[in-house]
Write a protein that binds this DNA or RNA. Structure first.
Lengths: 338, 338
DNA sequence: CTGAAAGCGCTTACAG
DNA sequence: CTGAAAGCGCTTACAG
């Protein structure tokens, strides 16, 4: 392994000062065009590239964004990683990825802060709001993705967030199910205290209430395939009280529900039960599922996230929450009015 | 945003030198236990955390690993991201994620090198081998994940890699299909020049050759759902020459094949055609697919990757390739001998 | 437009 | 065990 090249080496070859080399690699710095050319030539000859670490130290900007996620089973999150990291790359930023189980939230925080990231995106339903508060307190911009800040009793640090209009989405689901004549609508929740799940449920209930109804049953699937399966089994255990529609907090669990309903309970979807998901992950469109769902607009959510991030990096301190519209995607898992 | 805290601030409060503060945060450095205690106390009071950027600059170790991926549609890759980043976190490393379309491979390289990553994992079938060579030449350790170095004519830089025993896996598929009495076996390839796809195909052909057979047809799906669909349509266009088994380069395309065969061609799997995939992604186990496939052992692959990475970071320069055993997972998409 | 110089926040020989 | 000092590789006023 050869010794590391520095700006000095280039300066020597190009017969300029080290400062000039630095300027030649700083967009907008004042260098004579021909000097810059000569320096770039020398750099290319040597294979020199500025050291981003040293630059970060002095500019106090790392151009790194920390992205915290918990689990990637749900295909919605790989999608987010993909779009967000590509967008951020175009902006000249990079993403440092942290996959954290709930437990290690604190060590994750310490890590992130040590790396002097310019901002953090928290796209993990399970990471505590305390984590977000700590970062805000440490002066580093945080934006919550696909969840909303808990307005806790003690630490009243609000945090910026971007979500879909989950309540409106939930309402769409309720209205669709009502419109198609369903009378016994059950709700399969994600996590009991996840804002996303809660909001969607609230929207559903709102729509039902407007028609003088309410969900006939409710279970919790913890955003997990296997736990969703068991929740469905419980919900449909008694044929006498069987729901005629199941609204699910996300597609990942909706697909688990579909599999369980058809494969284990021998029910036909949508003939015997209708199922609606939320997210519109790629698999929802696969013919085997053909899942009616509410689409979250990932690109718009990513754009909003970047905007918020840059706003805060630029010095804005008051948090802002943006909720992106979502769209009902009608496919084949809801029966038509009979 | 408050001014950044430094070791000096802590030193002042704890009444020691800045060097002592540094030592208190360096495992194994020589500090009196009570001094260390006092310093940690002061640090906690102030909310001080060492600046990893400054540390990296002087130690010339960033403890960052660059992870380069291309697309995450295939659920195998989110799995890899998850396992690899968690393992690396436990090792005290962090991952800087680069999602690159084929085209931008060069800009990715420049970016990565500027960030002084300690190593790079290239888990992207589409990134050119030239990229890997450039890194190796720049003196930064690279390990290829799920692919193997092209031994090019010009730049003869070999690169370390970890893969499954793809050829053996391909052979398992061939033997299974032969054993169950299939006579017209078609191959659906991934990318024409992807080592992974090529090796699996070679294994399949080897098994068939041992029985005096060869694949009856072949098509390319480019690891893409839609292109796999079209390839299947072409492969099964003529009922007279219809294959009785389809071996597919990965599960992602195998599921596309299943959907197309059943949904569009009205064929029953495995009654009319058998299908075998490769990877054992989570969806392969879903009841709707119940896909017979070859499992790649992600955990073992991740462990091998770490081992190789640390070996090279530690100074080892001769590249090494490790191939992890894979396992046939028999489920429901291959008909039993009739 | 260009160079000399200070400094970003650490680690690490070197003395004591 | 501890402190003073040099230095990691840059950026950026400040003069000229």
């Amino acid at each position: 392994m050869k010794a590391k090249l520095t700006a000095h080496d280039v300066a020597r070859l190009a017969q300029v000062s080290q400062s000039a080399v630095s300027r030649a690699f700083t967009p907008g710095a004042s260098v004579a065009p021909e000097t810059r050319e000569r320096i770039h030539l020398a750099a290319r000859q040597l294979g020199y590239r500025p050291n981003a670490i040293a630059r970060s130290l002095i500019t106090r900007r790392s151009r790194i964004i920390g992205l915290v996620m918990s689990y990637l089973d749900n295909q919605f999150y790989p999608l987010v990683i993909e779009r967000l990291s590509q967008a951020l790359q175009r902006d000249g930023y990079h993403v440092l990825l942290f996959i954290s189980e709930t437990a290690q939230a604190d060590s994750v925080l310490t890590d992130i802060l040590q790396y002097q990231v310019d901002g953090i995106v928290l796209a993990s339903t399970t990471v505590s709001s305390a984590l977000a508060n700590d970062c805000t307190r440490a002066g580093i911009p945080v934006v919550l993705f696909n969840r909303v800040a808990q307005i806790g009793a003690m630490g009243r640090y609000a945090t910026s967030s971007v979500t879909s209009q989950n309540r409106a989405g939930g309402r769409m689901v309720g209205e669709l199910l009502l419109r198609t004549g369903h009378r016994r609508i059950a709700w399969l929740a994600g996590e009991e205290n996840a804002s996303t799940s809660l909001e969607r449920e609230a929207g559903l209930c709102e729509a039902l209430a407007a028609a003088g109804q309410e969900p006939c049953a409710r279970a919790v699937g913890h955003y997990d395939f296997e736990q969703a399966r068991r929740a469905v089994l419980a919900l449909f255990a008694d044929p006498a009280t069987r729901p005629d529609a199941l609204a699910v907090a996300n597609d990942h669990m909706a697909i688990a529900a579909l599999e369980t309903l058809r494969g284990e309970l021998g029910l036909r979807v949508p003939h015997d039960v209708s199922v609606v998901g939320f997210d519109n992950v790629p698999q929802a469109a696969w013919p085997s599922f053909n899942l009616t769902t509410v689409q979250q607009d990932v690109d718009q959510m990513v754009d909003a996230t970047r905007a918020l991030l840059f706003e805060h990096i630029g010095g804005e301190v008051v948090p802002r929450s943006v909720a992106v519209p979502c769209t009902l995607i009608e496919r084949g898992t809801v029966r038509a009015r009979q």
